[in-house]
């Protein structure tokens, strides 16, 4: 058994190439939407559709890639004796694991700070907003709610129930 990943034509070369392609594909799947949706770059509707599709399927795809990569790595591992080659195989698994995690992260919620659990103060007791500050006011039935603009400009997204109607306030 030739202990080699680079001998042309050997089955282990094919497996190594497949493993490398797998690593490349998860990186594309996870990083492409991040690259397409940059805050101060224009987006085309095609780029958005691609991003949506990749974000939607990447959690499943990366799990599949990790399982397949694990099998490939296991087979390759048994074929090599050099510790360097074993280290290389182990290294290939690292981006696969990382992508499973990354595909489940929402980096927009790291950059910005949405407020899912909002709390409120009665208007007459509010001392944290100055009279000249702007607020977004809504009124649903008799329930009047003010969202200070500075706060929504920071959170961008606040959920609430107003007058019994679930609403999302966004800025």
């Amino acid at each position: 058994m030739p202990e080699s990943l680079s001998t042309k034509g050997s089955p282990s070369t094919l497996l190594a190439v497949l493993l490398a392609l797998l690593v490349l594909s998860v990186m594309v799947v996870v990083l492409l939407p991040v690259w397409l949706i940059q805050p101060f770059k224009p987006q085309s509707s095609g780029a958005l559709a691609w991003s949506f599709w990749l974000r939607r399927w990447s959690p499943m795809f990366t799990i599949g890639a990790l399982l397949a990569g694990g099998v490939l790595a296991g087979v390759l591992w048994q074929g090599v004796r050099s510790p360097w080659r074993k280290a290389l195989i182990a290294c290939a698994l690292f981006p696969l694991v990382l992508s499973v995690w990354a595909s489940r992260q929402n980096h927009f919620e790291w950059m910005f700070a949405p407020l899912p659990n909002s709390s409120f103060e009665r208007a007459v007791r509010t001392d944290f907003v100055s009279p000249s500050d702007l607020v977004l006011g809504i009124k649903v039935k008799e329930d009047a709610v003010a969202f200070p603009v500075r706060q929504v400009a920071y959170h961008h997204l606040v959920q609430d129930d107003a007058g019994g109607v679930p609403i999302v306030a966004t800025f």
């Binding site: 907003v129 006011g137 929504v152």
Partner: peptide
Amino acid sequence: HDEVTFARWRKENPGGRVLR
């Protein structure tokens, strides 16, 4: 929705509530 100063909003909605 309506974007106004807090002073005006509170005058028009004394019984309202404000995001903390």
